Simulated scan of single mutants.
Amino acid sequence: MAETGQEGEEVSSTEALRRRLRSLYFGSDPRAIAFQFAMMMVDIAIIVFFLMGPYLRAGHAYVLVDYVVAAIIAFEIVARILVAPTLRYWLTRPMTWIDLFILATLLFPNQLANFAFLRALRIWAISQSRLFTLVLKRRGYGDYEETIQACINFLIFLFLVTGFVYSTFFYGENIIGFVDALYFTVATVTTTGFGDITLPGTLGKLTSIVTMIIGISLFVRLAQTIVRPHKVAFACPQCGLKRHDADAVHCKACGHVLNIPDEGT
Rank of each mutant, 00 (worst) to 15 (best):
P109T: 10
F117A: 07
T202G: 03
A113E: 14
A187L: 07
Y67I: 08
R221G: 09
I152S: 11
I102A: 06
I123H: 02
E76P: 01
A74P: 03
Y89L: 09
A246D: 14
C151R: 02
I216R: 11
G8A: 14
A84G: 11
V189W: 00
A32V: 10
M39R: 03
A125G: 09
E145C: 07
Y67N: 04
S127D: 05
C239H: 03
T92A: 08
R139D: 02
N259M: 13
T14W: 04
P261F: 00
L100T: 06
Y25I: 01
T202S: 09
A74W: 02
V11C: 02
A79E: 12
H256A: 15
R31G: 02
G163I: 01
F184D: 00
V65F: 12
N110R: 14
D99Y: 05
A125L: 14
N110H: 14
Y89S: 10
A150P: 04
A32N: 08
A116H: 05
I47C: 07
R80S: 13
V179W: 03
G201E: 04
R19S: 11
I148K: 08
L91Q: 08
V161D: 00
Q238P: 01
G240D: 10
T207R: 05
L218C: 03
I81M: 15
E3F: 11
R88Q: 04
G204F: 01
Q149E: 10
T96G: 07
L131H: 07
N153F: 01
P109F: 11
P94I: 05
I214G: 01
L160Q: 04
Q36P: 15
F132Q: 03
I126N: 07
L118W: 03
G240F: 06
T188Y: 00
F154S: 02
I44L: 14
I33H: 04
Y183C: 01
D196W: 02
T207L: 11
V69F: 08
H256L: 04
V165I: 15
L56F: 08
G27I: 11
D43R: 12
T105R: 03
S208D: 03
T162F: 01
A79P: 06
L24I: 12
F50P: 02
L199H: 05
E146H: 06
S12W: 00
A187H: 07
R138V: 10
E3L: 14
C254D: 13
L17K: 12
K252R: 14
F132M: 09
W90Q: 10
G264F: 12
F75K: 07
N174D: 10
F164Y: 13
A187G: 07
L199Y: 08
R93P: 00
L56W: 08
A246R: 12
D29W: 10
I33N: 06
L87E: 04
A246Q: 13
G195E: 06
C251M: 09
R221A: 14
F35A: 11
I46W: 04
P261T: 05
F178W: 13
F115Q: 04
Y67Q: 07
T202F: 12
F157W: 09
E173S: 11
K242W: 01
E263K: 11
R139Q: 07
F154A: 05
V78K: 12
Y55K: 04
G255E: 09
A38T: 11
T86V: 12
R18P: 03
V186W: 00
L100I: 15
D29R: 13
T4C: 01
T162R: 06
L107A: 12
G204P: 02
